[in-house]
Simulated scan of single mutants.
Amino acid sequence: MNLVEQMRGLAMHRINAMVLRYWYLLRSSWPRMLELIYWPALQIITWGFLQSYISQNAGFFAQAGGTLIGAVILWDILFRGQLGFSISFLEEMWARNLGNLMMSPLKPIEYLTALMIMSLIRLAIGIIPMVILAAVFFHFNLLNFGLPLIVFFCNLIFTSWSLGIFVSGLVLRNGLGAESIVWTLMFGLMPLVCVYYPVSVLPAWLQPIAWCLPPTYVFEGMRALLFDQVFRGDLMLGALAINAVLFVVSFASFLLLLNSAKRAGSLISGGE
């Protein structure tokens, strides 16, 4: 059937019905509405802070290469850790199988532990080639961090799991209409965790908020290690303490959202 024949059968009321269908879906889901504003605002905020840092430091480019590459790799550990956790969870949502799992003898902690393991597997598949490419093409060897790399990794992966658990609970309770939170939440935190610039670049009123986030301590610790050759154990202990609280809160939130989903019947439907 060619275009002319398609146009001949055009019916505006059917087009209008489909437009209304998508509009109602958008209007009824605040995560979808938020996503429309999200990316433009995020880009200008993140790179605006980076530009401020560059303009304040004339010698930045003389030493920034390793810092930026290291920041990119550590950021990817944080992001891919959360995404690897959440994708495995979403696989069950997409297959409408989560209700079956929750009605089985499987305990929530067992299910979450399995997701954490899958997160590590997915992360390894993505990060190892990235580290190799950085070493071959940019002469940046992440392993030169030595033992601090283990502490950096543990803090970042604990944060990613905590956020993954919390986000999974939100999707579990609100259905796939909240799925976009899985992809956007971590990027929303990106300007605050100071991946590419120090905390001092942020406005004074934002800095206390940044210090409430464990990844901020990791990226500040990385810069101290690369610029000053100093391992900031105090920063890592601070990150670990916040991560411990964050993990407990996220797990408790997941259980509350799971029970709420059971009462509301959204555990079985899992729809939009």
Rank of each mutant, 00 (worst) to 15 (best):
Val195Asp: 01
Leu225Phe: 09
Ser160Lys: 03
Leu176Ala: 12
Ile121Phe: 12
Ala241Glu: 11
Ala210Gly: 10
Val218Asn: 03
Met190Asp: 04
Val248Pro: 04
Leu189Asp: 02
Pro148Lys: 02
Phe227Gln: 10
Ala178Trp: 13
Leu170Cys: 13
Asp228Tyr: 10
Glu220Asn: 13
Asn144His: 12
Ser180Gln: 13
Val230His: 12
Phe231Val: 02
Ile209Asn: 00
Pro148Thr: 02
Pro198Met: 04
Val151Glu: 01
Leu225Pro: 01
Phe219Arg: 00
Ile128Lys: 04
Tyr197Trp: 01
Ile128Ser: 08
Pro129Tyr: 05
Pro214Tyr: 03
Gln207Phe: 08
Leu172Met: 13
Leu235Arg: 02
Asn141Ala: 14
Gly169Tyr: 04
Asn174Ala: 13
Phe153Thr: 13
Phe247Met: 14
Arg122Cys: 09
Leu237Arg: 10
Ile125Lys: 08
Leu147Arg: 00
Ala134Val: 02
Ile132Ala: 13
Val195Ser: 06
Trp161Ile: 09
Val245Asn: 00
Arg173Asn: 08
Ala124Phe: 14
Leu192Gln: 05
Val249Ser: 09
Glu220His: 09
Val248Met: 10
Met130Ala: 10
Glu179Cys: 06
Gly177Ala: 11
Phe231His: 01
Thr159Phe: 14
Val248Thr: 14
Trp161Tyr: 09
Phe251Asn: 04
Val230Leu: 05
Phe251Gln: 03
Ala210Tyr: 00
Phe219Tyr: 07
Gly175Phe: 03
Leu143Asn: 03
Leu226Glu: 05
Ile121Ala: 15
Leu185Phe: 14
Ala204Arg: 10
Trp211Tyr: 14
Ile165Phe: 05
